[in-house]
Simulated scan of single mutants.
Amino acid sequence: MTARSVRTKLHPRNQHLNGYDFELLTTQHPALAAFIIITPAGTKSIDFSDNKAVKTLNQALLKAHYNIDFWDIPEHNLCPPIPGRVDYIHYLADLLAADNQGQTPTGRQVKVLDIGTGANLVYPLTGTHEYRWHFTGSDIDPAAIKIAKQIAQFNGLKITLKQQKNAAHIFQGIINSKDLYHLTLCNPPFHASQADAVKGSERKWKNLGKTPHSALNFGGKNNELWCAGGELQFISSMITESAAVAEQVIWFTSLVSKKEHLATLEQALSQQPIAEYKIVDMAQGQKVSRFIAWSYFDKSTRQQICAEFE
């Protein structure tokens, strides 16, 4: 494992490093103007407790920065914060660059699998624009796959979408025998139960200075928010299952929301014949996040594989 450094800002290549340009955003997406508020400090913002405002902000961000002309999801689906999501993409690009003589591989020859892509399709949309990678998105929810396909088709993007039909598996049934991916990525379900998800929702509302409400400001269906055992069990299962497709993926990765889960996950990794793993810290304002990455290939082999993709 390599040394970790504390992050205090978004990735240097993140287009949102210096905050939101509301003049640009409202010019590109006039509907956002109705949700603009003035903060006590005299700056423009939106009410992040208003899920319609959050969704409209996302539409503006995707249009202004990522050339996504159409993006819409049902109210009950997860509406992710764009800056933090795209940060993950940029750090994944750095992960590949480290195996490619410091040069970030771009273009459709780079294959990326997004586990649990959701109806929002945010990682493939932003990653396709930033690096032109070829994304495959998987999800257990057929309705999410249908909506994601519509978004990709409307925007003329060639994104492959697959439904995971067996809830007991993550990679099996998605990664076929002839597939080879540079990366897998995942934003796993955070909570361990529906009750935990409700409590988390209440905490978010209180943190926003609002009375607890039944709806999350960022939305989210059950399968997007929780699974048995929460993120720890999900990522642990991913680590175990990754061994079966070890030679078909250069880097497996997943976000890890809770820092206290890292020790258990490192122990799970130690039980697999991996060559290397990394924990990469990220940050968005005061919030610190991270992802864990592991590879069954040593560095020289990874470099050879990357060279073959050129």
Results as ranks from 00 to 15, higher is better:
Gly230Ile: 07
Pro212Trp: 03
Pro74His: 05
Glu75Arg: 10
Ala167Met: 12
Thr8Trp: 08
Ile73His: 02
Ala246Lys: 13
Val110Arg: 00
Ala148Gln: 00
Tyr66Asn: 04
Asp196Gln: 15
Glu202Tyr: 12
Lys158Asn: 15
Ala41Lys: 12
Ala195Asn: 14
Gly127Arg: 00
Asn120Ser: 11
Ile68Phe: 05
Ser295Glu: 04
Thr184Ala: 02
Asp69Gly: 12
Leu265Asp: 11
Gln15Glu: 10
Asp87Gln: 00
Ala263Ile: 07
Ile279Asp: 10
Ser237Asn: 15
Arg13His: 11
Leu78Val: 09
Gln248Ser: 13
Pro142Arg: 03
Leu265Cys: 08
Gln163His: 04
Glu310Asn: 12
Ser193Asn: 10
Ala53Gly: 14
Tyr181Ala: 05
Ile140Gln: 04
Thr301Gly: 04
Arg132Ala: 14
Val54Ile: 12
Leu255Val: 10
Val249Met: 09
Lys149Trp: 00
Lys162Phe: 03
Ser270Gln: 13
Ile46Leu: 05
Gln109Asp: 05
Lys210Trp: 07
Leu232Asp: 13
Ala168Leu: 00
Gln286Asn: 14
Asn217Lys: 08
Asp50Phe: 11
Phe190Asp: 08
Ile235Phe: 03
Met282Arg: 06
Leu208Arg: 10
Val86His: 03
Asn120Thr: 07
Cys79His: 01
Ser45Ala: 09
Ala3Trp: 10
Gly118Tyr: 04
Gly285Phe: 07
Gly116Trp: 02
Gly127Ala: 10
Arg290Thr: 11
Leu262Thr: 13
Ile279Ala: 12
Gln172Tyr: 02
Asp87Cys: 02
Leu262Tyr: 14
Cys227Phe: 00
Leu61Asn: 04
Gln172Ile: 09
Ala283Ser: 15
Ile175Asn: 01
Val112Ser: 04
Gln15Pro: 15
Asp114Trp: 03
Arg4Ile: 14
Arg290Leu: 02
His76Cys: 14
Asn166Lys: 05
His65Asp: 08
